[in-house]
Design a binder for these strands. Structure first.
Length: 798
RNA sequence: GCUUGUGUGGCGGAAUUGGUAGACGCGCACGACUCAAAAUCGUGUGACUUCGGUCAUGUGGGUUCGAUUCCCACCACAAGCACCA
């Protein structure tokens, strides 16, 4: 094995000394901004996932620099958050100390792999100079009414003792400790992301994200179009507004259902005759978490509200009202009209409570199940005979005229719960004043620093550790000057990462988060690669912040990321997800020490389709090590000629084309296989020229840069990092001869070697002379001859 | 349940988008070098076969001269969403 230790160290030092990867603010050059998700510097250090995630754009940026671009490929640390805080508590050290220690380890590991990051722009979200601007943007949102406080039921993790956003509690499990999330009434800061729902949806049209990424975001935003309809209540002068996507089925409504928490119940207790029964159902519903409610979906439960009757606005029919936990207060209006004939849940409920089921759309069999498809309307007065779309339009028009309803839109996405009762996060820069309410900390007092504390454990009742620091809590109201108290919650982990890509552009600016002039040059991010797990959270959050900053005129483009891709996981050798408990983890740091960074970098890109998951294979990894060794040994065959070998010319031009295109399409595995083919071809030759060899090295450079540079230097050539990406000549990629298949009745019966672009007649003639083909002609008649030039010949016989 | 993917040798995976299925790598077998082993190099390697062929890209149909590729139905696995009205 070649001496990778020496070689890798040498070139890492060289690149650093020569500032090879520094992005310059030279606005005259074409720019390329490549972004990878910055790591969370946890104690365990870098894992294989990081290597794969970063290697993709690493290859692309190495190529871009050779193509003459001014490349910005930055790195930093997303260091606030619970894991560090929990680990610090365990080890009994300060999170600051632990974070610094972790970052140092992480940086060392990243550097050893030789990634071409611009190390002069490193950012750390926990740095005061950084989070000053996180707080600043928060205050801007507060100023515009996009950050607000509310007391509501929230997702709460009893184990971490912290409020979670919907995104952080997917599936009812805490994202950090995976324990069951419960609903708790809490004082919550929200960011009004729902106000940007439409813009976030619209913006997807103009960006180049992988289709599944777009789709996931669309689903997450969850826009639905329908109508709000008012149902009057017979006994009182009040109406219940519902949201529906199927207003066309209004004639089939046979009851209504309210969420247990629906406020109309509290307001009208006096007229409800079975109020005890209702209250007891509500109590039970409260005990269940929102997720238990979902899991127990099998059986519908509910209670009829005695003393309240609703009136169907389209036909004046009186219908009963129920409460049931299958209706959520958090979506729509917390009340629904039930059409059992055409909705599965309503159908189940109606069956259980023996309520009428009236079909209003033809098709399906309501004896068996609800029919949710389209069809001609029946039993629906003036809607009879219409299809779904026509009926929806007509009924909405009618409802609007009668002032009993209107067109409406709903989103699944909810506002972003933004405070955490923890120490290790950005303090929310708000002062709570008895007289003035919530008051912003003046901009010139930012950053509002995290106070030094001895004990940063969470309070028993889920209070932030900051609440115990009197010197922090007690302050003067910035508005009226009287005694006031600070908000003691901190921001969630996602805050710092919502704008970090802007800071890289101008990381040392103390006057603004980044200068507009520089932003105008560098934005948008040309290519953002990261994990699939972040597309519904971080990517949406950061797009939201960016849209907001755009509306303030502080950033130059509508969308932050022009292109977004995602890498697939590396699974353990057993094909399962790598995890400590399974004992199937592979430590990249040991591999770097034992086989070198080049081998590791190349292998993670070779082991499969970049976008799909693939299992690790130790043998395959050694195969790459062998491949690099072979490249090194090739150097014995090199002549001094600076021309391509004549006989290799076509092969070489084809290889340049293939490798270049594959890199652009992130088809790294086939790019590497092309390099292997080229090497195999070289190996069959007695001698290769210096030029031949240097080409192979340049193509190899993005994958295994250290070795490529070293071997290139031995040839006495300019370092690759200072030369150009090779170009190919399309004409020279075309072979003189092709081998094409000859089929008889669609089955391959032989192959023939012919010159490229041989005329059809000629091909047919040669094909017919093929011995094996001839055999199949015996006793049969040719009824059709198909010739696709340079591809295939097919004879159809009878 | 809904949405989106994926399914090809012993294994990871290729296939210019409808044109010689299995590139490249791993593994395996045999050979060379070696006292021997490792490393390295060379050859072979989808399955059956009566050596003429036959069957093969999850299963079953279809379109086509020709289908891994397009269409229909089904099965399996993975991811995401989940009583969203």
């Amino acid at each position: 094995m070649y001496d990778f230790k020496k070689i890798e160290k040498k070139w890492q030092e060289y690149w650093e000394k020569e500032n090879c990867f520094k992005a310059t603010d030279d606005f005259s050059k074409p720019k390329f901004y490549a972004l990878v998700e910055f790591p969370y510097p946890s104690g365990v250090g870098m894992h294989l996932g990081h290597i794969k995630a970063y290697s993709g754009l690493e290859v692309i940026t190495r190529k871009r620099r050779l193509e003459g671009y001014n490349v910005l490929f930055p790195i930093g640390y997303d260091a606030f958050g619970l894991p560090t805080e929990n680990s610090a508590i365990k080890q009994n050290i300060h999170p600051r100390t632990l974070t610094d220690r972790n970052i140092e380890v992480f940086a060392g590991q990243l550097k050893k792999v030789g990634f071409s990051f611009d190390w002069s722009r490193v950012i750390d979200t926990t740095d005061e100079k950084y989070y000053k601007w996180t707080q600043w943007i928060f205050l801007k949102m507060f100023e515009k009414g996009l950050a607000f406080r509310d007391k509501t039921l929230v997702n709460y993790c009893p184990s971490c003792r912290v409020v979670l956003s919907n995104e952080d509690s997917q599936g009812g499990k805490c994202d950090i400790c995976h324990s069951q999330v419960i609903q708790k009434e809490k004082d919550v800061w929200y960011l009004r992301i729902t106000e940007y729902a439409d813009k976030l949806l619209e913006g997807l049209k103009e960006v180049d994200y992988l289709p599944n990424i777009k789709l996931q975001q669309e689903n997450w935003i969850g826009k639905s179009e329908g109508a709000f309809v008012d149902f009057n209540v017979k006994e009182i002068d009040e109406k219940i507004t519902i949201y529906t996507t199927r207003p066309d089925t209004l004639f089939g409504v046979t009851f209504m259902v309210l969420a247990p928490e629906h406020p109309i119940i509290d307001k009208n207790k006096n007229i409800i005759s079975n109020i005890e029964e209702i209250e007891s159902y509500r109590e039970k519903a409260k005990e269940k978490t929102e997720f238990e409610r979902v899991q127990l979906a099998k059986e519908k439960t509910g209670v009829k509200i005695e003393g309240m009757t609703a009136i169907n606005p389209v036909n004046g029919k009186e219908i009963p009202i129920y409460i049931s936990d299958y209706v959520m207060m958090g979506y729509g209006t917390g009340a629904i009209m039930a059409v059992p004939a055409h909705d599965n849940r309503d159908y189940e409920f109606a069956k259980k409570f023996d309520i009428d089921i009236i079909p209003v759309i033809e098709g399906g069999d309501i004896e068996k199940e609800a029919y949710t498809g389209d069809g001609i309307h029946i039993n629906s007065s003036y809607l009879d005979g219409l299809n779904k779309e026509e009926a929806i339009n007509k009924i909405i028009k009618k409802l609007t005229e009668q002032k009993q309803g209107q067109k409406g839109v709903q989103y699944k996405m909810k506002d972003w719960a933004f405070n955490r009762q923890r120490y290790w996060g950005e303090p929310i820069p708000i002062v709570k004043c008895q007289h003035c309410g919530d008051v912003a900390v003046p901009y010139d007092e930012l950053p509002l620093k995290l106070p030094e504390v001895e004990n940063f454990e969470v309070g028993k009742d889920g209070e932030s550790p900051l609440a115990k620091i009197e010197s922090f809590v007690n302050c003067k109201c910035p508005k009226c000057g009287r005694d006031a108290k600070r908000e003691t919650d901190t921001m969630p982990q996602w805050a710092g990462s919502s704008w970090y890509f802007l800071r890289y552009i101008d990381p040392h600016n103390d006057n603004e988060f980044a200068s507009l002039e520089k932003l105008k040059y560098w934005m948008p991010v040309d290519w953002y690669n990261g994990g699939m797990e972040h597309v519904t959270r971080h990517v949406i959050y950061s797009r939201f912040w960016y849209h907001f900053l755009y509306d303030l005129g502080l950033v130059p483009t509508k969308e932050p990321y022009k292109k977004r891709t995602a890498q697939g996981l590396i699974l353990g050798p057993d094909g399962e997800k790598m995890s400590k408990s399974r004992g199937n983890t592979i430590d990249p740091n040991t591999l770097v020490d034992e086989y070198g960074a080049d081998t590791l970098r190349t292998y993670v890109l070779f082991l499969g389709d970049y976008g799909l998951e693939a299992p690790w294979n130790d043998q395959g990894f050694k195969g790459i090590s062998r491949f690099l060794d072979r490249i090194e040994r090739l150097n014995e065959k090199v002549t001094s000629s600076m021309e391509y070998s004549k006989e290799l010319e076509t092969t070489i031009h084809k290889a340049i084309k293939k490798v270049s295109n594959d890199i652009e399409n992130m088809k790294f595995n086939t790019a590497i296989s092309e390099l292997m083919k080229l090497l195999n071809e070289y190996s069959t030759k007695e001698k290769i020229t210096k030029k031949d060899y240097s080409l192979l090295l340049t193509l190899l450079y993005p994958f295994a840069p250290h070795l490529a540079e070293e071997l290139n230097e031995r040839l006495g050539l300019t370092p690759i990092c200072k030369s150009n990406w090779p170009e190919y000549d399309e004409v020279k990629t075309i072979e003189d001869n092709v081998t094409i298949g000859v089929q008889v009745n669609g089955k391959l019966r032989g192959t023939i070697d012919i010159a490229v672009d041989t005329p059809k007649e000629e091909i047919l003639k040669i094909a017919k002379e093929n011995e094996n083909v001839k055999k199949h002609f015996e006793g049969k008649q040719i009824i059709k001859e198909i010739v696709i030039p340079n591809k295939i010949v097919n004879f159809v016989l009878k």
